Computed example of a mutant assay.
Amino acid sequence: MNHATSPVGAPTGAFTQLLSSTRRGARLARLLAVTELRSRGASQDLTERAELVVAELAANAVLHGRLSGRCFRLTLALDPAADRLRVEITDARGDLWPWPAPAEDGPGALPLGGRGLALVTALADHWDCVPHPPGGKTVRAVLTTPADG
């Protein structure tokens, strides 16, 4: 049966789901994140930004982190009191790490890739990537809602 679980070492109240490394799995990650955040009473701003961040990171896991027969994992850790969310996407490709888009080469130059992580950078307070033994990686993004927002 495929259902949400809390793995050993996961923060209390964390939502975790294994998903197929397909476009359908990436789309489901986005839908599950929105549903979970709404059910936990997260603010609309936080939920909308998380939807875009999850969509981008899940798409990257499917496009760049896929190994045949291996799933990717979505983890959401929400602290409702602080209106703070940590999004984690874990994939099987520890040998291929994400990098922000390089600076433009000249006036009017359009980068050929990497715009998705620029979006994550704009929407999240910060993001990083850490190894996930035995051979994968986890891309983490932290989002908060400003106190006056």
Rank of each mutant, 00 (worst) to 15 (best):
S6Q: 13
P7M: 06
A10C: 06
T12S: 13
F15W: 15
T16P: 06
Q17G: 00
L18G: 06
S20G: 04
S21V: 03
R23E: 09
L32D: 04
A33F: 01
A33S: 13
E36V: 14
R38A: 12
R40Q: 12
A42W: 00
A42I: 03
A42Y: 00
S43I: 11
Q44E: 14
L46R: 12
T47N: 00
E51Y: 03
V53P: 01
V53Q: 09
V54D: 09
E56K: 12
N60Q: 12
A61V: 04
R70L: 10
C71I: 02
F72G: 07
A77Y: 06
A77R: 02
L78Q: 00
D79C: 04
P80I: 00
A82G: 05
D83L: 07
T90G: 10
A92L: 01
A92E: 03
R93T: 11
R93S: 01
P100F: 02
G108T: 12
A109R: 05
A109M: 11
L110R: 13
L112V: 14
V120L: 08
L123V: 04
A124K: 01
D128N: 12
P131K: 07
P131C: 00
P134K: 04
K137H: 08
V142G: 03
T145Y: 02
T145W: 00
P146N: 11
P146Q: 06
A147C: 02
D148V: 07
